[in-house]
């Protein structure tokens, strides 16, 4: 593509870049504000992450606090709770991926195949609606629905002859409640990306398949699924990149003393240690460990996505 900015022959690339920069100084000026923002709110905290190796003293500040080496990391990994917290984080994540992966695809195919326009529209609209419920309200809703005395679920269980159920107080039930309520809230939203891919399947391809004698099932299997395969692959790979970053907001609200053994995850633990108990160094160390694992996972997931020919996040 020839542009008016093409560097004249004989000039060094560096000189050309400098000339370009001088001519477009306004672009840099526009970029200044966002750059200042990430410097302040993203890169400055990264500098502050050195607290993981320091005993924080408010009077001396981050730079002046004394070094303690790997003390906090050793402390964390030596404590009996560390393994449980990491395993909880992992199992919530993997459970979530397993459930939230398949169902939205089936929903998208079902929506795409439904030939009653009005019903399809209504179904899409309704399944999509819970996405807009805030986390707080969502958890409030879960608590109401599962309330041992008045909730609709225990009442249904009782009506069907079951015993009394206190699901929110049960460590065994916690992860299932978390994951399936997540599916309830997110299935419609997650289906959209596949629906978009399905909408891109050319009608000619479908007609050709019909003329060649494909049944409906064969068309789904041999036309629709291959068409959304790239989307499926990249969504799956990327979700593994986020395995160690379970969101704080919903888990924290769903926690109570009774279910803590299966509901404590890294981010909620960091919050409690760091901001409730004000043990900054220790909490920063756990957070840094988590960030590093996330980084490694994302880099691997990205490489895998690229290898799969899907292009990655970057």
């Amino acid at each position: 593509m020839s542009s008016i900015e093409a560097p004249p022959r004989g000039r060094s690339a560096l000189g050309a870049a400098a000339r370009l920069a001088r001519r477009h100084w306004q672009l840099y000026l526009i970029l200044l504000l966002p750059l200042a923002y990430v410097a302040l709110f993203n890169y400055l905290p990264m500098y502050g992450a050195q607290l993981a190796f320091k005993r924080f003293s408010a009077s001396k500040g981050i730079a002046g606090s004394p070094w303690v080496g790997l003390r906090y990391f050793k402390l964390f990994f030596a404590s009996p709770s560390s393994l449980r917290i990491i395993l909880n984080t992992l199992s919530i994540s993997l459970y979530s991926i397993a459930v939230n992966f398949l169902f939205p695809i089936i929903l998208a195919v079902a929506l795409n195949e439904s030939r009653r326009r009005a019903f399809r529209k209504a179904a899409q609209m309704i399944t999509y609606a819970p996405y807009f419920i805030s986390t707080v309200v969502m958890v409030g809703l879960i608590l109401q629905v599962l309330d041992p005395r008045l909730g609709i679920v225990p009442r249904l269980v009782a009506a069907l002859g079951g015993g009394e159920t206190n699901l929110m107080g049960s460590p065994k039930a916690f992860q299932s409640i978390y994951v399936w309520s997540g599916l309830w809230q997110g299935i419609g939203y997650s289906a959209i990306i596949y629906l978009a891919a399905l909408a891109g399947v050319s009608p000619e391809l479908q007609e050709a398949a019909i003329i060649d004698g494909c049944s409906r099932g064969q068309r789904i299997r041999h036309v629709d699924i291959p068409a959304i395969m790239p989307t499926i692959v990249i969504m799956l790979i990327l979700s593994f990149g986020f395995v160690m970053s379970v969101g704080f907001e919903k888990v924290y609200l769903m926690q109570n003393d009774m279910n803590l053994s299966s509901s404590e995850i890294i981010s909620t633990y960091v919050y409690k240690v760091g901001l409730v108990n004000a043990d900054f160094g220790f909490a920063t160390a756990i957070g840094l460990f988590n960030s590093l694992v996330n980084l490694a996972l994302l880099v691997c997931a990205n490489a895998a996505a690229r290898r799969a020919g899907q292009g990655g996040l970057w």
Binding site: P45, Y47, S291
Partner: peptide, 9 residues
């Protein structure tokens, strides 16, 4: 893909 974490922020 990388953050300083909750406490430094």
């Amino acid at each position: 893909i990388f953050s300083g974490g909750m406490i430094p922020t």
